[in-house]
Write a protein that binds this DNA or RNA. Structure first.
Lengths: 211, 211, 211, 211
DNA sequence: GATGAATGAGGATTCATTCAT
DNA sequence: TATGAATGAATCCTCATTCAT
């Protein structure tokens, strides 16, 4: 609605602008990520992204061949960022459950803090059909990281570890749908509660009468 | 925005008479639901919906004042359908956990069977901002149903029942993102596994060392 | 924007409704006149007119074959109304200038009071090309009435009576463009001032140096 | 609504450079002016305007953010053109009435010659409600020019100069409704006759018996 | 590397009109 | 007389993309 003049953006950016192409790419990725997260893929126009980066829409095509390609790049960057956050968080932790919890917290924080990654859970619109496989590959990689964390957990024998991984990530990711930063709950609180619930399902736990 | 559509007019004018229009409305709702589920709100054009119903695009507007209004109607119908399925499934079951599981199964089946309700988890695109409140109201109602089922569960004392509800629904709904009907897993299997994991978190369960 | 439900109108009208066809025609003419005056020909939809009369749009076509025909009927009725007002106002007045002034006042009042006749001065949109001749014929008749009033005026010899008539009516009609009922000026004041100015242009008036 | 168009951008960015776009803007303005004059605002489609300029309809939006904005631009250009014509015509004339007449002639010629300015008198359709204030501001400016010409006239004491201005412009502008270039009357003739009539209303003129 | 200008298909929506009932 | 349902063309506008400069 209240769009921003290119000129306005330009005047503001001119400082650090004129950076190399790699720099520009990063700028575009940042702004596109922010906009995709807030407005979705279809709700964000190339012109908007261009304007936010201090460019005109045509110039985007020097850096990315299409809107889809740009989205994939954003998505991969986001997943990678979450992955790195998680790996950083678990470094040096030995206890499997502690490690698992630390990972969940890092994942949740990366997801809910900053505008960038809410795309994670997207049921990609059909416009993205052509690049779906790339997106899924990126997501899978992240999920395998969780598989590695789940493997050493002393889960009750009747628990399927794949379904368990889907369960955790589903519970964590869904926070995007309801979490409000204004709440007195931190993203870490949310993650901790999810893990707290799951932690009951350890081997030897008493669930006698479960059918 | 506040226009008048057939529903308004007819409900008032003629009680139940003239099945014709109501029939059409239902047809449109069905087709729109299918298409929205498959392609998302923005990915589905009014022309497509019209064509699927055997109409021309203009004719849709006799029944629904706007694409948004149509979406709200579809969404409400879908939530209602899931709600009814759940209520039907728990009828006559006394044991709280049995009841909870039955509800989860019904919820999951309604979600994953048929194309109609995958919209449930939508992070609504900003185009729908104007009607967001209606959508959220519908969703809330469904979630309160789960609150009623969670209340009597003998959960461990350190579990927050609101976060628990968000956890369950998050885990269940996320199946939409990965579930494939072709799999050897039934929707019920998925739901059952989620509940199986959660069931460990009952009162008196041994989780001694959890910090 | 804020449209009115058919039902609402209906409930209200039901009292005097069910009148004969002639009655209905008159109702339609009234409402259409009001709407055309306020919103113009193109800015008024048949549905709007129908709703204002307590009908559905299709029903209008029983009374008028097309939107254009309806407009012509409204226009003619309006012109006739102004004409009758003028004729009523000059009845019994002998002095030519008194008579002329009375006519101007009546014309102006009919024009500025009530919503109905602001159409008078319309530069008809090309949509109305087919019926233009009918509209112009109606207008001409009204203008000939003014010709009859101008004929006996003792105007200065160098004044062309046809151009004079166009001048008066132009000055009077243009009030529609700026007149606001809220002003302390009455429509009669406006008309009186126009005539006051023109009255100077009588025979024998001293305008020596006019080239 | 508050979007950015080329004008804004360019005025700022590059002073007078790059005649291309400015050229196009002028072309569009010309064609749009012609079409609006002939067919009215609602009767003219953006496609038509585009086609007349040798563009596709989408391309128009690079230069003007909306049909309304385009109309405002046309309107302002037209008013400005008439204003300039009038100012040119009165240059160097000392006698107030001569000056007034010269202005009237120029105004009338600008109005009736060329297709461009017949919009002047428009009772703007409600579609233009949002921009009405801009249109009125433009018109007011032109009318103030006439106020300056009327001020020094030696009008009879009982004449209100504001109503007098409205009277003149009403009489002049209304010519649009009936004037046909084919007639043996020139636009100047029309203007001259209007002024001739008004010139009688000078101070000291004999209007003794007026009530 | 970036721009300005244009493309052209596609979007939702409106509307006068028709016609069987 | 009136209705309900549908028509289909037309409307304004958006947008990813292209390409000469």
């Amino acid at each position: 609605m209240a769009r921003t003049t290119v000129r306005a953006r330009r005047d503001a950016d001119r400082a650090g602008a004129d950076a190399g192409a790699a720099e520009r790419r990063k700028q575009i990725l940042t702004e596109a990520g922010r906009l995709f997260a807030k407005q979705g893929f279809e709700g964000t126009s190339m012109r908007e992204i261009a304007a936010a980066t201090g460019l005109l829409s045509g110039s985007l095509y020097y850096h990315f061949a299409s809107k889809e390609e740009l989205f994939v790049a954003v998505y991969e960057a986001n997943i990678r960022a979450v992955g790195e956050a998680v790996e950083g968080a678990i470094e040096g932790i030995d206890d499997p459950w502690e490690c698992f919890e630390a990972a969940a917290i890092a994942h949740c924080e990366a997801l809910l803090t900053g505008e960038k990654t809410s795309i994670l859970d997207a049921k990609f619109p059909p416009v993205l059909a052509q690049v779906r496989s790339q997106l899924i590959r990126a997501r899978d990689e992240h999920e395998r990281l969780f598989d590695r964390l789940i493997a050493p957990l002393d889960l009750a024998a009747d628990i399927d570890r794949v379904l368990f991984r889907l369960h955790v990530l589903g519970a964590l990711n869904s926070a995007i749908l309801w979490y409000k930063p204004s709440s007195r709950l931190t993203p870490a609180d949310v993650a901790r509660h999810v893990i707290k619930v799951l932690r009951y399902a350890r081997q030897g736990a008493a669930t006698a009468e479960v059918r």
